[in-house]
Nucleic acid binder design. Structure first.
Lengths: 110, 110
DNA sequence: CTCATGTGCAACCTCCAGGTTGCATATTAA
DNA sequence: TTAATATGCAACCTGGAGGTTGCACATGAG
């Protein structure tokens, strides 16, 4: 099973979406399960509402969050599938690593 | 189990280190288990050796890779512990998410 | 109806990530 | 010793990420 270039590229943008402190804090908040409005997500963070909006859009492009409108509010929630994708990718890398070490060990012990 | 601000910040820089296509490709190569030189890591990638060096340094700051000198070569290898850290962080988020949904389900079913 | 609230859009600013080139310096191979 | 190889250091460039402000526009509350 090879990790294709497309796969790598997609994963990179996913990790990039997680690789910003503000965004990661948003993810943590959203991991509570609820769908939160932009205004409520902005609360407590040292960034403008517009800034938060941009971050949410970045995450949306990475497939990390979805949003739907309810009245005048824009509600955002996590899409856990992408989170799972990220975990799987890391699992894959770790597995290759472990396998390589196992092979090395067998080789040395012969 | 708190996800302190420091924890979040550290994790963010870790994900950021993974969140660049070139760097992720380096990680994939290094997951083979060996310690590779800068020159060999550069091979096949559309980036200068200097560019690769910078990427390696970024990853080193994130704790993702280590390097040691052997003669005129600078050998780099993965530090799998940080990879594990990243997985654990994602597990944590997923768990909070699952728990939240479970609570919601119980609540609805009552 | 009127106001306060929640967003969207667009222009703008600044800094640094990601990349390059040029040159100096260690090491190793012949 | 001489060349070729592998890096390091430093200066430099450029686009876009991350942030802001100002204003217009829906929509919900009274």
């Amino acid at each position: 099973m090879r990790s294709s270039a497309a796969q790598t590229s997609r994963s990179a943008s996913l990790f990039a979406a997680l690789g910003d402190e503000t965004r990661l804090r948003l993810v943590v908040r959203l991991s509570g399960g609820g769908a939160l409005s932009i205004a409520s997500l902005t609360e407590g963070l040292p960034v403008t509402r517009q800034g938060i909006t941009k971050h949410l859009q970045v995450m949306e492009h990475a497939g990390l969050v979805r949003n739907h409108r309810r009245g005048r509010e824009s509600l955002w929630q996590l899409d856990q599938r992408r989170l799972t994708d990220a975990r799987k990718y890391l699992d894959l890398i770790s597995k290759q690593w472990d396998d390589a070490l196992a092979r090395l060990k067998r080789f040395v012990e012969e």
